[in-house]
Amino acid sequence: MRTRNILDGFIPIIAFAVIWEGIAWLHIVPEYIFPSFSAVMREFYHLTVNGVLLNNLASSLFRVLAGFLLGSVAGIMMGTVMGCRQIINRSFNPIFTLLYPIPTLGWAPLLMIWIGINEMLPIILIFLCSFFPVLYNTITGIRSVDDDVIKAAKTLGASDRKILTSVILPLAVPNIFTGLRLEAGMAWRVVIAAEMVAIPTGIGALLIRSESLLRVDIIIVCLMVLSVMCLVFERFFQYIETKMTKEWR
């Protein structure tokens, strides 16, 4: 049944590739503007074999993982403290409420001046992009835990710390993972934008170089890789969330 579902998902993609190949084969537009699917796949193979694609992907992946990990951990920790302690929430919430609506890439010019154009720039941008949504989802998750459940744990002898680790955080997991899942895809979008603007390595940089060389086939390869990476990240968190909560939700 599962194999059947996967096959069902691939059929439209295969149909799309066939139609794409057919349109390119008609040569309505020049191949350098609209390459065929097979030409793109050939380029994908070349870029993979000569290491260009993998090197750039590794650079982007490192930035995404570093920024996302730091931003998520910070968001979960701060969200936990703000969700549990009203006074800390009241102190920080006004500041975060002002900072959250700023588009992540809006920080780029300021960060370029403050930290320069180096490896830290995309990492900090991804940190900012991950931090706020994970923070607010964590706070929401913690606040949504039923008060009576917390009281029940207290009457059974659990300390505040034990209640946090054994009741509140496990029950906040679905909300926390919603934040992580949404931002996993967003982190890739931000790293590509940052690399296109300022960084000479990574998938974003490869994209912008390909544009200057009018290599539409490489651009499409990069977009495909980006699409797959976003999907893999989102599905990864979905899988972990399901694994952790499917028994009781």
Binding site: D148, K151, A152, T155, W248, R249
Partner: peptide, 14 residues
């Protein structure tokens, strides 16, 4: 050391 049965029972769902 109080045993408390809440109106909504408040079982730990997880």
């Amino acid at each position: 050391r109080v045993g408390y049965l809440f109106q909504n029972l408040a079982l730990f769902p997880h």
